[in-house]
Amino acid sequence: MAKPRIKVPKMAKVGEIVEIKSMISHKMESGRRKDKKTGKVIPRKIINALKVTFNGKLVFSASLHPSVSANPYFAFDFKVPGSGDMVFEWTEDGGKVITAKKSLKAA
């Protein structure tokens, strides 16, 4: 289960600074916990990277490590260059990529 949520304003002025928010529901299994019944280590499974692009251009990126809590949340300020699509890509251990997209109209 990894459901993304992003908040990008639908409309903004060119040059305006807006706040972008993102959250993805994810357990962020650290790889350090043990199964209480079997005593075996539960394999690590975390979101290890977030990449955000606007019209294909990288605007934000982060590497995540096992100490990041469940449901990682990122917010950043963004100076609107014009209209376009903002695409979020979260990469999970194992290589699975989860994406979310929102369009922004600039006036």
Binding site: K3, R5, K7, K21, M23, S25, N71, Y73
Partner: peptide, 12 residues
């Protein structure tokens, strides 16, 4: 409403 992580469960 956006920051509240409980809302992930609310949506579900």
């Amino acid at each position: 409403d956006f920051d509240n992580p409980g809302n992930l469960w609310l949506e579900e």
